[in-house]
Protein backbone atom coordinates (compact mmCIF):
# COMPACT_ATOMS: atom_id res chain seq x y z
CA UNK A 1 0.00 0.00 0.00
CA UNK A 2 1.40 3.41 -0.93
CA UNK A 3 0.23 6.91 -0.19
CA UNK A 4 -1.12 7.45 -3.71
CA UNK A 5 -3.31 4.39 -3.53
CA UNK A 6 -4.49 5.19 -0.03
CA UNK A 7 -5.30 8.75 -1.11
CA UNK A 8 -7.13 7.32 -4.11
CA UNK A 9 -9.19 4.93 -1.99
CA UNK A 10 -10.04 7.70 0.48
CA UNK A 11 -11.01 10.09 -2.33
CA UNK A 12 -13.18 7.35 -3.81
CA UNK A 13 -14.80 6.77 -0.42
CA UNK A 14 -15.38 10.52 0.01
CA UNK A 15 -17.08 10.70 -3.40
CA UNK A 16 -19.52 7.97 -2.37
CA UNK A 17 -20.15 9.55 1.04
CA UNK A 18 -20.78 12.95 -0.61
CA UNK A 19 -23.33 11.33 -2.88
CA UNK A 20 -25.02 9.51 0.01
CA UNK A 21 -25.01 12.79 1.98
CA UNK A 22 -26.61 14.67 -0.89
CA UNK A 23 -29.35 12.09 -1.36
CA UNK A 24 -29.96 11.63 2.37
CA UNK A 25 -29.80 15.32 3.34
CA UNK A 26 -31.81 16.71 0.45
CA UNK A 27 -33.98 13.59 -0.03
CA UNK A 28 -33.39 14.26 -3.69
CA UNK A 29 -31.33 12.70 -6.45
CA UNK A 30 -31.90 15.43 -9.03
CA UNK A 31 -28.81 15.87 -11.16
CA UNK A 32 -27.63 12.33 -10.40
CA UNK A 33 -27.54 9.74 -13.17
CA UNK A 34 -29.13 6.47 -12.04
CA UNK A 35 -27.43 4.78 -15.01
CA UNK A 36 -23.97 5.73 -13.76
CA UNK A 37 -24.89 4.40 -10.32
CA UNK A 38 -26.11 1.12 -11.83
CA UNK A 39 -22.88 0.82 -13.82
CA UNK A 40 -20.86 1.32 -10.65
CA UNK A 41 -22.85 -1.36 -8.84
CA UNK A 42 -22.06 -3.76 -11.71
CA UNK A 43 -18.38 -2.71 -11.59
CA UNK A 44 -18.05 -3.52 -7.89
CA UNK A 45 -19.99 -6.80 -7.99
CA UNK A 46 -18.01 -8.00 -11.03
CA UNK A 47 -14.66 -6.94 -9.56
CA UNK A 48 -15.03 -8.13 -5.98
CA UNK A 49 -16.01 -11.72 -6.73
CA UNK A 50 -12.89 -12.78 -4.87
CA UNK A 51 -14.26 -11.12 -1.75
CA UNK A 52 -14.81 -14.43 0.03
CA UNK A 53 -12.24 -16.57 -1.75
CA UNK A 54 -9.11 -14.44 -1.63
CA UNK A 55 -8.33 -12.62 1.59
CA UNK A 56 -5.84 -9.78 1.03
CA UNK A 57 -6.22 -7.68 4.17
CA UNK A 58 -8.88 -6.44 6.56
CA UNK A 59 -8.68 -3.03 4.89
CA UNK A 60 -9.21 -4.58 1.45
CA UNK A 61 -12.17 -6.66 2.57
CA UNK A 62 -13.83 -3.86 4.52
CA UNK A 63 -13.47 -1.36 1.67
CA UNK A 64 -14.90 -3.86 -0.83
CA UNK A 65 -17.93 -4.41 1.39
CA UNK A 66 -18.37 -0.64 1.80
CA UNK A 67 -18.15 0.02 -1.94
CA UNK A 68 -20.55 -2.78 -2.85
CA UNK A 69 -22.92 -1.86 -0.03
CA UNK A 70 -22.98 1.87 -0.80
CA UNK A 71 -23.36 1.48 -4.56
CA UNK A 72 -26.27 -0.95 -4.11
CA UNK A 73 -27.81 1.33 -1.47
CA UNK A 74 -27.64 4.32 -3.83
CA UNK A 75 -29.28 2.37 -6.67
CA UNK A 76 -31.93 1.06 -4.24
CA UNK A 77 -32.54 4.60 -2.98
CA UNK A 78 -32.93 6.11 -6.44
CA UNK A 79 -35.18 3.31 -7.67
CA UNK A 80 -37.31 2.41 -4.68
CA UNK A 81 -37.16 5.02 -1.90
CA UNK A 82 -40.66 6.48 -1.93
CA UNK A 83 -39.48 10.11 -1.64
CA UNK A 84 -36.15 10.08 -3.49
CA UNK A 85 -37.36 8.11 -6.50
CA UNK A 86 -39.84 10.86 -7.37
CA UNK A 87 -36.96 13.31 -7.78
CA UNK A 88 -35.26 11.16 -10.39
CA UNK A 89 -35.73 12.69 -13.81
CA UNK A 90 -35.40 9.81 -16.26
CA UNK A 91 -36.10 12.11 -19.21
CA UNK A 92 -32.62 13.65 -18.94
CA UNK A 93 -30.82 10.43 -17.97
CA UNK A 94 -31.09 8.87 -21.41
CA UNK A 95 -27.59 7.51 -22.06
CA UNK A 96 -27.77 4.00 -23.59
CA UNK A 97 -25.59 2.52 -20.87
CA UNK A 98 -26.38 -1.08 -21.80
CA UNK A 99 -24.21 -0.61 -24.88
CA UNK A 100 -21.36 0.30 -22.52
CA UNK A 101 -21.93 -2.93 -20.59
CA UNK A 102 -22.02 -5.02 -23.77
CA UNK A 103 -18.99 -3.30 -25.32
CA UNK A 104 -16.89 -3.68 -22.19
CA UNK A 105 -17.87 -7.32 -21.81
CA UNK A 106 -16.93 -8.09 -25.41
CA UNK A 107 -13.61 -6.29 -24.97
CA UNK A 108 -12.97 -8.28 -21.78
CA UNK A 109 -13.57 -11.51 -23.70
CA UNK A 110 -10.67 -10.57 -25.99
CA UNK A 111 -8.37 -8.56 -23.72
CA UNK A 112 -7.78 -9.97 -20.24
CA UNK A 113 -4.90 -11.27 -18.14
CA UNK A 114 -6.11 -14.88 -18.19
CA UNK A 115 -9.14 -16.51 -19.76
CA UNK A 116 -10.85 -17.49 -16.53
CA UNK A 117 -14.31 -16.52 -15.27
CA UNK A 118 -12.85 -14.29 -12.55
CA UNK A 119 -10.18 -12.62 -14.70
CA UNK A 120 -12.57 -11.88 -17.58
CA UNK A 121 -15.06 -10.31 -15.16
CA UNK A 122 -12.21 -8.39 -13.49
CA UNK A 123 -11.13 -6.93 -16.87
CA UNK A 124 -14.80 -6.24 -17.67
CA UNK A 125 -15.17 -4.30 -14.41
CA UNK A 126 -12.01 -2.28 -15.17
CA UNK A 127 -13.26 -1.30 -18.64
CA UNK A 128 -16.76 -0.58 -17.40
CA UNK A 129 -15.49 1.66 -14.61
CA UNK A 130 -13.54 3.69 -17.16
CA UNK A 131 -16.74 4.65 -19.00
CA UNK A 132 -19.27 4.44 -16.15
CA UNK A 133 -19.15 8.22 -15.62
CA UNK A 134 -20.38 9.00 -19.15
CA UNK A 135 -24.12 9.02 -18.36
CA UNK A 136 -23.41 11.34 -15.41
CA UNK A 137 -21.24 13.72 -17.49
CA UNK A 138 -23.87 13.80 -20.24
CA UNK A 139 -26.52 14.58 -17.63
CA UNK A 140 -24.37 17.38 -16.20
CA UNK A 141 -23.95 18.88 -19.67
CA UNK A 142 -27.71 18.69 -20.21
CA UNK A 143 -28.79 20.12 -16.90
CA UNK A 144 -26.41 23.08 -17.08
CA UNK A 145 -25.43 24.24 -13.63
CA UNK A 146 -26.16 21.68 -10.94
CA UNK A 147 -25.92 21.73 -7.18
CA UNK A 148 -22.53 21.78 -5.53
CA UNK A 149 -22.71 18.34 -3.93
CA UNK A 150 -23.18 16.71 -7.33
CA UNK A 151 -20.22 18.64 -8.70
CA UNK A 152 -18.09 17.66 -5.70
CA UNK A 153 -19.14 14.05 -6.20
CA UNK A 154 -17.92 14.02 -9.82
CA UNK A 155 -14.75 15.87 -8.88
CA UNK A 156 -13.74 13.38 -6.16
CA UNK A 157 -14.69 10.48 -8.41
CA UNK A 158 -12.33 11.80 -11.09
CA UNK A 159 -9.56 12.60 -8.61
CA UNK A 160 -9.49 9.06 -7.20
CA UNK A 161 -8.47 7.45 -10.48
CA UNK A 162 -5.87 10.18 -11.02
CA UNK A 163 -4.31 9.16 -7.67
CA UNK A 164 -4.39 5.54 -8.84
CA UNK A 165 -2.36 6.48 -11.92
CA UNK A 166 0.33 7.88 -9.61
CA UNK A 167 0.04 4.63 -7.63
CA UNK A 168 0.67 2.54 -10.78
CA UNK A 169 3.67 4.68 -11.74
CA UNK A 170 5.03 4.33 -8.20
CA UNK A 171 4.50 0.55 -8.16
CA UNK A 172 6.00 0.19 -11.64
CA UNK A 173 9.12 2.01 -10.43
CA UNK A 174 9.42 0.17 -7.12
CA UNK A 175 8.15 -3.36 -7.75
CA UNK A 176 9.79 -5.83 -10.12
CA UNK A 177 7.43 -7.40 -12.62
CA UNK A 178 4.71 -4.93 -11.80
CA UNK A 179 2.66 -4.72 -14.97
CA UNK A 180 -0.98 -3.75 -14.63
CA UNK A 181 -1.44 -2.59 -18.22
CA UNK A 182 -5.15 -3.28 -18.37
CA UNK A 183 -5.89 -1.23 -15.25
CA UNK A 184 -3.34 1.48 -16.12
CA UNK A 185 -4.55 2.09 -19.69
CA UNK A 186 -8.22 1.96 -18.65
CA UNK A 187 -7.41 4.28 -15.73
CA UNK A 188 -5.80 6.79 -18.09
CA UNK A 189 -8.87 6.70 -20.36
CA UNK A 190 -11.11 7.12 -17.30
CA UNK A 191 -9.20 10.15 -16.02
CA UNK A 192 -9.05 11.65 -19.53
CA UNK A 193 -12.87 11.52 -19.71
CA UNK A 194 -12.93 13.88 -16.72
CA UNK A 195 -10.39 16.26 -18.26
CA UNK A 196 -12.91 18.75 -19.63
CA UNK A 197 -14.96 18.54 -16.43
CA UNK A 198 -11.85 19.28 -14.38
CA UNK A 199 -11.07 22.23 -16.66
CA UNK A 200 -14.50 23.82 -16.24
CA UNK A 201 -14.48 22.92 -12.53
CA UNK A 202 -11.18 24.75 -12.07
CA UNK A 203 -12.42 27.77 -14.07
CA UNK A 204 -15.60 28.00 -11.99
CA UNK A 205 -13.57 27.61 -8.79
CA UNK A 206 -11.12 30.35 -9.88
CA UNK A 207 -13.94 32.75 -10.80
CA UNK A 208 -15.81 31.65 -7.71
CA UNK A 209 -18.78 31.03 -9.96
CA UNK A 210 -21.14 28.11 -10.24
CA UNK A 211 -19.96 25.34 -12.56
CA UNK A 212 -21.16 25.96 -16.11
CA UNK A 213 -20.55 23.16 -18.57
CA UNK A 214 -20.92 24.18 -22.22
CA UNK A 215 -24.08 22.59 -23.63
Amino acid sequence: MNIFRFAGDMTHLISILVLLLKIYATKSCSGISLKTQELYAIVFVARYLDLFTDFISVYNTVMKLVFIGCSLAIVWCMRLHRVVRRTYNKDVDTFRHYFLVLGCFLLALFVHEKFTFQEVLWAFSIYLEAVAILPQLVLLQRSGNVDNLTVQYVFFLGAYRAFYILNWIYRYLTEPHFGRWIASVAGLVQTALYADFFYYYFISWKNNAKLQLPA
Binding site: D9, H12, R47, D54, K64, W122, G179, A183
Partner: peptide, 10 residues
Amino acid sequence: ARPIARHDEL
Protein backbone atom coordinates in the same frame (compact mmCIF):
# COMPACT_ATOMS: atom_id res chain seq x y z
CA ALA B 1 5.43 -17.65 -16.87
CA ARG B 2 4.92 -14.68 -14.62
CA PRO B 3 2.24 -15.62 -12.09
CA ILE B 4 -0.93 -13.60 -12.45
CA ALA B 5 -0.52 -10.81 -9.91
CA ARG B 6 -3.23 -10.97 -7.29
CA HIS B 7 -5.63 -8.09 -7.61
CA ASP B 8 -4.62 -6.48 -4.35
CA GLU B 9 -6.07 -3.10 -5.37
CA LEU B 10 -9.65 -1.98 -4.99
